[in-house]
Amino acid sequence: MNRLQTNLGKLDLASPLLVASGTFGTEYFDLIDQKLLGAYVTKTITPEAKTGNPPPRLFETEAGLLNSIGLQNPGLESFISDELPKLRSLLSIPLIVSFSASTLGDFCSMLESLEDQEGIAGYEVNVSCPNVEREGIAFGADPAILYKLVKRLSAITKRELTVKLSPNVTDIAAIAQAAVAGGASSLALINTFYGMAIDWRYGESRIPKFVCGYSGSGIKPVALALTYKVAQAVQVPLLAMGGIHTWQDALEFFYAGASAIAIGTATFSDPDTFAAIHQGLDAFLSDKDAILHTLIGTVH
């Protein structure tokens, strides 16, 4: 009996453990058994190749990791011709493609191109990027803009459509409701927080881009609170993430309302994290003679 069975909108998942976009690649399959994962989420793909940000791109803090990768990726065309065939042959779990663009039109044409491809189970829409048609405000920061985007995208696909929310907003519940009203069949949350580090000796930013993304154990309580808030505001399944390192961390997110969780920064501090969380959750549920599904959203 698989006590960890869950679903994310239209997808039935054999494991509730997913990978946070950008923190995982097939290189990890030497070290991590893909059967531990419910689905494989790609790094975010953009319409054109992106070279990414100048180094250094990383700085580890007392309780997490700052990154400034700049969405380095080969672009849609190369993804479809080179990476997708490899993923199709390697994966025995559902493939979720994360994508992003800087205009509404580009988002739609990307999705149309991806729809022509086989072997994709769903999409994660990364809406944390600036909208160049709206003075660079992120798509995911304004409910009206996000609603319009998701409405257009959901008309293009019947596959699973997850919208990944940014935590860097005033009211995440309103954003979540807008995405669901637009047709998102699940939500992923959260992307990285804004973060920064300065070398106090010289007054110099540790990262050339100054403000970067912050992930890891330091954001866990905040991510948990945002998961709870969103779970209270919408009915669709949530893929939650933010600083999860242990099976106990994972349980907290399920109680808060997550149907599945993703692991990101913790993979870097130990690729064995997936196995440990999977085993820990299974043992916990066996001990209680329970299944994961009955726990979801039952915080009291």
Partner: peptide, 27 residues
């Protein structure tokens, strides 16, 4: 030498300016 997160080539955190783009020190 570079600051690294994954070490195996997935995160692109250790990239350095090589050739036309940024290449991973780890991979």
């Amino acid at each position: 030498e570079a600051y690294m997160a994954c070490g195996v080539g997935v995160c692109y955190g250790c990239a350095v300016p090589v050739g036309e783009d940024y290449q991973r020190v780890c991979k």
